[in-house]
Design a protein around this nucleic acid. Sequence first.
DNA 1: GACTCTATCTCGGTA
DNA 2: TACCGAGGTAGAGTC
Lengths: 219, 219
Amino acid sequence: MRILVARCTVDYEGRLAAHLAEAVRLIMVKADGSIAIHADGGAYKPLNWMNPPNNLTETPERWTVTNTRGEQLVIELLEVLSDVTHDLGSDPGLRKDGVEAHLQELLAADPSVLEDGFRLVRREYPTAVGPVDMLCRDAAGAAVAVEIKRRGETQGVEQLSRYLEFLNNDPALQPVQGLFVAEEIKPQARVLADARGIRCKVVDYAVLRGDRPEDLRLF
Amino acid sequence: MRILVARCTVDYEGRLAAHLAEAVRLIMVKADGSIAIHADGGAYKPLNWMNPPNNLTETPERWTVTNTRGEQLVIELLEVLSDVTHDLGSDPGLRKDGVEAHLQELLAADPSVLEDGFRLVRREYPTAVGPVDMLCRDAAGAAVAVEIKRRGETQGVEQLSRYLEFLNNDPALQPVQGLFVAEEIKPQARVLADARGIRCKVVDYAVLRGDRPEDLRLF
DNA sequence: GACTCTATCTCGGTA
DNA sequence: TACCGAGGTAGAGTC
């Protein structure tokens, strides 16, 4: 990884046009050829960047970075304050716990959490417009399509609506109800779900995993 | 900005749990207190990060970063290869041209571009499921809900469908037609719009802005 | 390669 | 502050 600190201006032409006026910034060139330009604020996003693969043409005053999609980044170097290179080696990568996939696994393992008497028919139940996260039968034997999200937004309700539209064309299943499950459900998503006759259920990943019994959450 | 290159392990506990095994990485500490940890690949995303405001507790072997939302990042420093600090000063920021907002402004300024006789009722017209980009009346006085995108995809059509569903419940407006406007409309989006009775209109930002007259685009 | 969906999305706007 | 939507979304998985 090459780390440059320099007073510079930057121009990007590609999916849109963007310009950075003169200032001191960090320019990171990674082993895969990617380039990122950071200011001294905002943890996550570089001001400008180019994803690999890139072609870098370098002169002392100007770097021109192009890629195969017709995007171009031009860095005018007015003053280089530092220019160092470190060999970082490869990274073992990030291990995560608590994403939507884990939520799905826990709910599939015990669907009765969603409602008494629920039993799982199939995970990733296929429809013509994509797979439903879970298809269940309730205590009365009626089919229920379950869509699971970490954050419940209107988009997820739309997704479930589409699945229900198709599932309700299957004589072996119909009528199919909808259940929208998330750790957090936004007001607009709830309004839309109500309008579509879809029920909502909020769950807690930590509780499902058994870390914190439900009654302890009162504190 | 402080730039550390170090062999380290990292643990994050917050919106989810994540772990990074031992490796050499770049640790960036910005003036606003934000922290980002980068590997030598992937231009954009740090492996781990903490957004400001943060509280950083530092010992030679361990950094503990916490914020007000109960998130915590712990960095175990096994070997520090470099530790430098640069004063970058403030950044004038990024100027962008060609985003959706600019498209909206130009169309709001002259809705007749969309169709002869169109006049604007209101931008960001509110509904229970979110605001429509523009509500217009056509030459005959009929209401038209307009959704504007840079890239027209099925999602945008779904969005407009949702608005229309609710707008058509308003006796003062109904019947409300839909018009989907974008610089580029994907085939699938067009098919879906047709199926929903929504009209499509392709516009060109440069032409609207007046840079390039329509007839010059033939070359 | 194109399409789909998630994300510790980030970031900006607004009520 | 919370909510909403755009983004050069990026990045991962699937077909």
